[in-house]
């Protein structure tokens, strides 16, 4: 357990550092690579919590597919060079920092106040492909309908992306 907790603190520090880099870096490509780092750290957290399927999907879908799409668009639009004008100027920066600090404070407060004590006797839940599949296709649970709706959503996404990205002839 002690090694486990040391690993958590190291990974959490790495994760927060990479997340700060996503925001602070002026180069969009470096932001994207830092975001890949965040997602790899989160994947390790998922594996550590027994959510193997979510961790694997996190690596494949987020770090693999979505971030490649981001990098592809950055290269396509030629935005790879750092641009000093790409941060907002004036009042919006301190306002954003203040609002986010308030958000963090309220989230931490809610987490500290409303958190139920840890249930030690609870049977550990595992997130293997088998468990996820049984839960997903169980007619007694709400996930089956959502799963079917997701297929429609992804179809709309594919068609919409093709329509939006095609060159207009007029």
């Amino acid at each position: 357990m002690q090694g486990n907790s040391i690993g958590f603190w190291i990974l959490a520090a790495l994760c927060i550092f990479a997340a700060v880099q996503v925001v602070a870096n002026r180069n969009p490509v470096r932001s994207a690579l830092a975001l890949v780092g965040v997602m790899c750290c989160l994947s390790v957290f998922y594996f550590a919590q027994g959510a193997e399927f979510v961790g694997a999907v996190q690596l494949i879908v987020y770090a693999g597919a979505i971030m490649v799409l981001f990098l592809f668009v950055i290269m396509l639009l030629n935005l790879g060079a750092p641009n000093p004008m790409m941060d907002r100027v004036g009042l919006s920066k301190p306002v954003a920092l203040l609002a986010s600090a308030a958000l963090l404070g309220s989230l931490a407060l809610a987490g500290a106040l409303k958190m139920a004590p840890d249930r030690v006797g609870k049977s550990p839940v595992s997130g293997t492909v088998q468990q996820i599949g049984y839960a997903l296709f169980d007619p007694g649970r709400p996930w089956l309908f959502a799963f079917e709706l997701t297929s429609v959503l992804l179809l709309v996404g594919v068609v919409g992306a093709v329509v939006l990205a095609q060159r207009r002839s007029d």
Binding site: Q49, F70, L104
Partner: peptide, 25 residues
């Protein structure tokens, strides 16, 4: 611990949405 880490990451993301002008970022 995980909730706290999640709150920190969420707040960092909110800062980025507030201060960035590049829509990809």
């Amino acid at each position: 611990h995980y909730i706290g880490l999640s709150a920190i990451l969420f707040a960092i993301g909110a800062v980025g949405v507030g201060i960035k002008r590049n829509p990809i970022v």
